[in-house]
Amino acid sequence: MKKHHVSTTINGDEVDFLCETSETLLDVLRDHLHLTGAKEGCGTGDCGACSVTLDGVLVCSCLVLGVEAEGKEIETIEGMADGDELHPLQRKFVEHIALQCGICTPGLLISARSLLEKNPNPTEEEVRFGLAGNLCRCTGYQNIIEAVMDAAQEMRGA
């Protein structure tokens, strides 16, 4: 099967890959580039476990074709920490026990980062609605919401 040659930037690195038309960006990240931080929970955009940003916009990578990534900048969970230094959201997720099994965690962190970029001082309700695209089955969301609120406060420098 003929494949497309795609040149893209992932977490700041220039990356080339080959993919079939039917392969999603998530397939490419996980199966071709071995960036397995984004997870496939549903493949239909209903769980948010595969969340990444595409040119700064939060998307489900299962709903983007790999070939559409040509010339784009992609950010995944693998690029969230700065070396050993965790992003404040990552740190607060650890502190607040905002994760259990952890399968939804990368997607939630990417979503939460996007949320706080747009709205650095959200209400609890705004966080709950803003993260509604990310299913979590372990935590009941309570500690996730607390972690995001706490991280927002820290990131505002309050």
């Binding site: 948010g48 916009v57 709903l63 509604a132």
Partner: peptide
């Protein structure tokens, strides 16, 4: 129309 992720597209 869907989550923020979905509306991103």
């Amino acid at each position: 129309i869907g989550s923020l992720q979905v509306k991103g597209r």
